[in-house]
């Protein structure tokens, strides 16, 4: 299957999804008015990937900002990863947050408590 590489814009994050090494990266800002459209191909890619996944999937989420519209789509991504894990695949989720950004750390903890996959919280120090 094809890998995905989407450049960041002022309202949407950079996305990289590589089926060869199972590394998924979401980085930047996710603040579109309507996020469903932006995230649809990503969710579809994950559905396809789940049919024949890498032994280990690593997800790096490094968001500076995300709005409530995106929060739902991000949860949908995590739910796909939860299913992947339930199907006995290794899934590692790295949640990056900037030093002092307690809201972002808290958001990561909120997601972690909803899905049953542990997050690795990584603080980025300037």
């Amino acid at each position: 299957m094809e890998s995905i590489s989407i450049e960041a814009t002022t309202k949407t994050p950079e996305i990289k999804m590589n089926p060869e090494d199972g590394v998924i990266e979401i980085k930047g800002r996710s603040i579109p008015e309507n996020s469903i459209e932006f995230y649809r191909p990503i969710i579809e890619w994950l559905d396809e990937y789940a049919k024949n996944p890498n032994k280990k999937t690593t997800v790096n989420v490094q968001l500076e900002y995300f709005n409530t519209s995106s929060s739902k789509c991000i949860l949908d991504i995590f739910k796909k990863l939860e299913s992947l894990k339930r199907a006995r695949n290794e899934v590692v989720i790295n949640w990056y947050y900037e030093e002092d950004d307690e809201d972002m750390l808290e958001s990561g903890e909120d997601y972690e408590s909803i899905i049953r996959v542990p997050f690795k919280m990584i603080e980025i120090v300037d």
Binding site: E64, Y65, N67, E98, D100, D101, E102, D103, M104
Partner: peptide, 10 residues
Amino acid sequence: KKSIKKKLYN
């Protein structure tokens, strides 16, 4: 303060 800036932006 970056954390205030982020809160305000959000």
